[in-house]
Amino acid sequence: MKEHIAAVHKQTIAQAAERLFLERGFDGTSISDICAASGYSRRTVYRYFDTKEEILYYIVANGLEQLRDRLTDIVQAEQPFLAKYEHICKAMRAYYEHCPVSARAVHQFQPKALETVTPTMEPFSL
């Protein structure tokens, strides 16, 4: 029961922060803003999150978990390939629409991560 209550508080704080991050951006949002928008005291917010960055990570992780779960369901479904492809495209679009802070954060950091990827095969020419 206690874990459920903590999860509700964390979600309420994260939802308020997500709205503010969309309106003002991450840098334009302070912990005080999050406290005011969520209706929690500074002490309570810090009880559930150590930093504003941790709130962002929580939002990103939740969005990615939802996307992962949806994609897993699609891939495991007994459907023709083209139907799966269509559902995957819809799931990706829903992720961008319903989890915009998560999607933007992933998109922002993804290109930097790709710069460090080493190709496993040499390019070939025809």
Rank of each mutant, 00 (worst) to 15 (best):
A113I: 01
L67R: 02
G39Y: 10
T116S: 11
A37H: 04
L67Q: 00
Q66M: 13
E97P: 05
E78F: 06
I59A: 06
A103M: 01
V106I: 14
K52R: 10
Q110N: 11
V60D: 10
G28R: 05
I74R: 04
H98Q: 15
K52C: 02
F21L: 02
T116P: 05
R43L: 12
P111L: 09
L114F: 11
A17S: 00
R47P: 08
E78H: 08
R104K: 05
A36S: 15
K84S: 04
Q76P: 00
R19W: 00
H87I: 11
T72W: 06
L20Q: 06
S32T: 15
K10F: 01
A61Y: 04
V60E: 00
D50P: 06
A103T: 09
V101D: 02
H107Y: 11
S125N: 07
Y57S: 15
Y57G: 14
E18F: 02
E23F: 00
I59K: 07
E122D: 13
V8Q: 14
A113G: 09
Y48F: 10
Q15G: 12
L71N: 02
E54Y: 08
A77Q: 11
T116A: 13
T72I: 14
T51L: 03
L64S: 00
G39D: 07
L20W: 07
D33R: 11
Q79Y: 10
G63Y: 00
K90R: 14
E53S: 09
S30K: 03
K90E: 15
S30Q: 05
A83S: 13
Y48R: 02
A105P: 03
T44D: 07
R68W: 08
A77T: 07
Y95G: 01
A103Y: 02
Q79G: 10
V106T: 06
A6G: 03
R42K: 10
S41A: 03
G25K: 01
I74S: 07
S102G: 07
R68K: 14
Q15P: 02
M121R: 11
I55W: 01
L114I: 11
R70T: 13
T120R: 15
H4K: 14
I31T: 06
R70F: 01
A103C: 04
A61C: 05
F21M: 08
S38N: 04
Q11L: 15
Q108C: 12
A83P: 02
F124M: 06
L64D: 03
F109Q: 05
N62K: 12
K90C: 09
E97A: 09
A105N: 09
D73A: 06
V117S: 03
I74Y: 02
R24S: 15
E86A: 13
K112I: 13
F124E: 14
T120V: 14
V101Q: 00
